[in-house]
Amino acid sequence: AELMTLTIVKGAQGFGFTIADSPTGQRVKQILDIQGCPGLCEGDLIVEINQQNVQNLSHTEVVDILKDCPIGSETSLIIHRG
């Protein structure tokens, strides 16, 4: 298992991935745009978004944080894999 830092840019259609609740937090459910989120894999656990720890937040709260990220700006994700 490892922590990885990824930088992704939000496009007009969003980030290009969906998230779902899991017992340990929000996991990447589906990658819709592989080019839009390079390095991200289905099943990755989202630990931080732009230096904000999201592991204890609800699904709705994490979705809102992602929605609030401006289109075209870089967003830093720390994910836990494995």
Rank of each mutant, 00 (worst) to 15 (best):
S76L: 09
N56Y: 15
G16C: 12
G39V: 01
Q52C: 09
I34F: 08
L40A: 06
T5M: 14
V9T: 12
C69W: 02
D68I: 02
Q55G: 15
T7N: 14
I65V: 13
G39E: 02
G43W: 03
E74I: 03
S73V: 11
C41H: 15
T5A: 07
L57S: 14
I31W: 01
I71L: 06
V63K: 07
E2Y: 07
I71P: 09
P38W: 07
Q51M: 10
M4T: 12
A12R: 11
T24F: 09
G25V: 01
G16R: 09
P70E: 13
P38R: 05
V63Q: 07
Q51N: 14
G72V: 05
P23M: 08
I34S: 11
I34C: 08
E61L: 10
P70C: 02
T75I: 06
P70V: 14
G39T: 11
A12T: 11
K67V: 06
Q52P: 00
I65Y: 10
Q35I: 03
E42K: 12
T18A: 11
E42D: 04
L3V: 10
Q55M: 12
T75N: 06
V62I: 15
D33S: 11
L32W: 04
I31H: 02
R81V: 02
T60W: 08
K29Y: 00
R27E: 04
I31M: 07
E74F: 15
T60G: 13
T5E: 07
N56F: 06
Q55R: 13
Q30W: 14
L57Y: 12
T75K: 05
D64E: 09
Q30T: 06
E61A: 04
D64R: 07
Q35E: 04
R81W: 01
I71R: 07
L45W: 04
I49G: 00
Q30A: 09
E42V: 09
K10I: 03
D44H: 00
I19E: 00
V9C: 05
H80Y: 13
D33T: 11
Q26V: 11
S73Y: 04
V63G: 08
C69D: 02
I65F: 07
H80V: 03
G82L: 04
I79W: 01
L32T: 11
Q30E: 03
D68L: 05
P23A: 07
D21P: 10
D68E: 11
Q55C: 06
V62D: 00
S58W: 11
L6N: 04
V54K: 00
I34T: 08
T60H: 15
E2N: 13
L45V: 03
I8D: 00
I34V: 13
G14K: 09
G82H: 02
C37L: 12
G39F: 02
E74P: 15
E2K: 07
C69Q: 05
R81L: 01
L6C: 14
G11P: 14
Q35K: 02
T60R: 10
S58T: 05
L40F: 14
T5V: 07
N56T: 11
A20K: 11
E74T: 01
P23V: 02
F17T: 00
A1R: 15
D64N: 08
M4C: 05
I8W: 08
G25Q: 02
P70L: 07
S22E: 06
G25S: 03
L3I: 13
A1S: 15
G43K: 15
L3R: 12
I31R: 02
L40V: 09
L3T: 13
N50T: 01
C41W: 09
D64G: 09
Q13D: 09
T75Y: 04
E48D: 01
D44S: 01
A20E: 04
D33W: 06
T7Q: 07
D68Y: 13
G43Q: 15
Q51A: 12
D21C: 05
L77I: 15
I71T: 10
V62T: 11
G14E: 12
Q35V: 08
M4A: 06
I19C: 02
L45G: 07
C69V: 11
F17Y: 02
I34L: 13
D64H: 15
E42W: 04
G43H: 13
I34G: 11
Q52N: 13
G36R: 08
Q51H: 12
V47A: 14
Q51W: 07
E48L: 06
G72T: 04
G39A: 09
F17I: 09
P23G: 07
G16Q: 07
Q55W: 05
K29A: 07
K67I: 02
K67R: 14
V9G: 08
T75G: 08
L77C: 11
S73P: 10
I78T: 03
C41N: 12
S22D: 14
N50I: 01
I8P: 07
Q13T: 10
F15A: 04
Q51Y: 07
L6M: 09
Q13S: 11
L77G: 00
H59S: 10
T24H: 13
T18P: 00
D68Q: 15
G14R: 07
L66T: 01
R27G: 06
T24I: 05
E42N: 07
N56E: 15
T18L: 13
I34H: 04
T75E: 08
L66Q: 01
N50M: 06
G11D: 13
H80R: 14
Q52Y: 11
G25R: 02
G39S: 10
T18K: 14
D21S: 09
I8H: 06
P23R: 11
H80G: 12
F15D: 05
E48M: 04
T60A: 15
Q26S: 08
A20T: 02
G72P: 13
S73N: 02
L6Y: 08
V47Q: 14
G36M: 14
G82W: 03
I49R: 00
A20N: 04
L3D: 11
T60D: 05
T5K: 11
V28F: 01
G16N: 13
V28T: 01
V63C: 03
Q13V: 08
Q35A: 15
I78E: 07
I34Q: 11
M4I: 09
H80F: 05
P70F: 08
T75P: 04
G25K: 02
E2M: 12
V47K: 03
I8G: 07
G25W: 01
S22Y: 10
N53F: 07
N50F: 00
P23L: 11
T7L: 08
E42T: 12
L66Y: 00
G25D: 00
I31L: 13
S22V: 08
E48P: 00
M4D: 12
E74M: 14
G82V: 03
F17W: 11
L40S: 01
A12F: 08
C69Y: 04
G36A: 02
